[in-house]
Design a protein around this nucleic acid. Structure first.
Lengths: 186, 186
DNA sequence: TACATAGTTTACCGATCGGTACACACTCCC
DNA sequence: GGGAGTGTGTACCGATCGGTAAACTATGTA
């Protein structure tokens, strides 16, 4: 009966959703086991460090995803506006119009922030820096680009909060559209 | 030795800070007792419904505070720009430049949202409606006022997330200043 | 076939969880 | 002074928490 799961990385998505839905404290090992289909033994086999290592692995996976589909395009796409547009497309899909929470943002708001402070901070600084770079490449002056990049990233986080609070994904879509226009209007 | 606390409402501020710092799940009765200086006996005397009633009471107090210092001025101040300016002043003080979390926003992001869905939604709809009313009174056309009011409220929530994630209260101040100018520029 | 390794199941640990019960202390009012 | 009512401290409840230990089973290799 064993050998049902091949790789540790196979359970990261389910693990991520579990943390997203219940938060770090709320995601008990029982819930995690239910979400991943793994018993405690297997979980501690893959993540000897327990919950903390699980959450850390999830954060690393999120980081890698955003690096590939958001940050890198922002920095490297030939036409910066293409990178910015790709960022908004990726973000709207990823957060499912606010139905899906940003785990890093949720960690930042809660007590979990201190535990993963470095990772949380790095995620946001890299996002803002990548966007700022793209805006500068698109012809904005550095001061404006710095302000606008912060505005956009914060705006997306706020849109998630608002959409969830109102129970209205359209609120996220409206905010994303506004921010997209603000970022793309030369 | 008893009779050290006179009113149930006296412990609401400490209760609120405890929920803000640890979240609903993370705020154990032990932590709550420590924060309020009350034993379980007293806590359950004031809040027979347990943690849920405590959190509900805190949300009600927050609601009342915002109604008095934010929503009402937005709706009723003679010159709407004065109400808007008062809102930003109140918000920056209340959230201590992002050092203090918005409990309603934090609840909206977490699993706690469902438990207090009505209250959470009401808080944000009332805020947005009051701001929209003020913006219309200030001469904006209704569509622009609706969009801008959502942008400002979401922007404030996002600014809190960002400031906490970066560990930089100035990030909140910058965002608040940007939003203030956007809301006040006729 | 024999053995090491990877993965799983199960039982169990002490600590803590939210919540209850109740005796007790203080204050107020008669 | 003596209840009545309002708080308070403490012991306790079953459930669940995160985590550990070890017996066990499948698989790959020789």
């Amino acid at each position: 009966m064993p050998k049902s799961v091949a790789e540790r990385s196979d359970v990261l998505p389910a693990l991520g959703e579990c943390f997203r839905e219940h938060g770090y404290e709320g995601a008990s090992l029982a819930l995690i086991g239910e979400a991943t289909g793994l018993g405690k033994g297997s979980l501690y086999h893959f993540f000897p460090g327990g919950k903390e290592e699980m959450a850390s692995a999830v954060l690393a996976e999120i980081d890698a995803w955003f690096e590939q589909y958001v940050f890198a395009p922002l920095r490297e796409t030939e036409r910066p506006d293409d990178g910015i547009a790709a960022m908004f497309d990726a973000v709207e899909t990823y957060f499912r119009s606010g139905r899906r929470v940003c785990l890093v943002g949720a960690f930042a708001l809660g007590e979990t922030r201190d535990r993963f402070a470095r990772r949380v901070r790095a995620y946001f600084t890299r996002w803002i820096d990548a966007l700022r770079t793209a805006l500068i490449r698109a012809g904005r002056d550095p001061a404006c680009a710095a302000a606008l990049s912060e505005e956009v990233v914060a705006g997306i986080q706020g849109a998630i909060v608002l959409a969830r609070a109102l129970g209205d994904p359209k609120a996220f879509a409206r905010a994303a559209e506004r921010l997209r226009r603000a970022a793309l209007s030369t």
